[in-house]
Computed example of a mutant assay.
Amino acid sequence: MLIGVPREIKNNEFRVGLTPAGVRELAANGHSVLVQQGAGEAIGLDDARYQAAGAQIVAEAAEVFARAQLLVKVKEPQPAECAMLRPDQVLFAYLHLAPDLPQTRALLASGCTAIAYETVTDGRGGLPLLAPMSEVAGRMAIQAGAHALESAQGGPGLLLGGVPGVRPGRVLILGGGVVGINAARLAMGIGAQVTVMDRSLERLKYLDELYGPQLTTVYATRDAIDEHLPHVDLVIGAVLVPGAPAPKLICRAQLGLMRPGTVLVDVAIDQGGCFETSHPTSHQAPTYEVDGIIHYCVANMPGGVARTSTFALTHATLPFVVALADKGAPQALRDDAGLRNGLNIHAGKVTCHAVARALGLDYMPALAALG
């Protein structure tokens, strides 16, 4: 099979879909790989390393899209990329379709097979291709929030970890999943006071057993959120509903409960965000203010640490890429129910129920669509 790796074109996105090690694995299985010139250059993976691993370097994305049977990307295809997709092509990338009707329509119109990293599951129902970036995003959320609290960034001039004689910052994390636990770990590591809210008592018990009195766990209700908002300095939105829009946990009226300069970091912004006042931002202009509250809503947070993120992501995606290349997409999807859960679009049909429901589109089960 001919696999294509285009250079990412989303704002400040420097990750790449395959590393040279991945190219070598695919080449050893008899496959060919096209890599767009400079695809990994920003993270120290130059074209010579890809060539040494067996890739062919091509100058333009158009050639990658025109020739490749399987496209391996990181972020969702931008409009210009969607226009180059075709019916006999497989796209493997993060898609986040639930809040994005234009992209969904473009993928449907292309006729391509689109497999979303974020809805692929493992045997325990986990999200193995989302987890690595959730780990990165959770840790980055504290970094970004701490930076936004600085005076020069428009914040209240608060050091999140405090110093002797001065209280540390208070962090509220909404959601105790992969993002939440990584955010909590980093925040506690720098000395902040941390509270995690979740609606899973099992998850709260796990966190309590893991961290003991160092971490406060609270069952998430609207009253509990209202009770905590006046006292916190940083709120991390870390709630995920696989494939579906994120629930809105804080509405605009609740901003009035917080002190001016409080920072909201919305890690769920790829799925529409979990704060009513959230809208996507970029690494170039990451924050904005609403009613005195600072919002950080970068839609590709892990792209800010692109080298770390690329290796973490590709370690998880490579076995699936190899399976798709070795078996062909239809057979690989039939053989692996977890990979099949990642199928969002096939031959002009929406094959992810959560996406179809969110966008009001017709749904066809993946096996039925595959025929």
Rank of each mutant, 00 (worst) to 15 (best):
G4N: 09
E13R: 04
E13M: 07
R15Y: 14
G17R: 08
A21Q: 13
G22I: 10
R24E: 15
S32I: 14
L45C: 07
D46G: 13
A55T: 09
I57A: 00
A61H: 00
A61N: 02
C82K: 03
D88H: 14
A98K: 06
A106G: 03
M133N: 07
A141Q: 06
A146M: 00
A146I: 02
Q153C: 12
Q153H: 09
G154M: 06
V163N: 07
G165V: 07
V166R: 11
G176M: 03
V178R: 11
G180R: 06
R185C: 12
A187P: 04
M188F: 04
G189Q: 12
G191Y: 00
Q193G: 13
L207W: 04
G212Q: 05
G212L: 04
P213T: 13
R222S: 15
A224H: 04
V232C: 13
V235W: 11
P242H: 01
P245V: 13
I250S: 00
L255M: 05
M258W: 00
R259D: 02
T262P: 00
V263P: 00
I269P: 02
F275P: 02
S278C: 06
H279P: 08
P302Y: 06
A306V: 10
A312I: 12
T314H: 10
A316S: 13
R334F: 15
D336A: 07
G348L: 06
V350D: 03
V355N: 00
P365K: 07
P365H: 08
L370R: 02
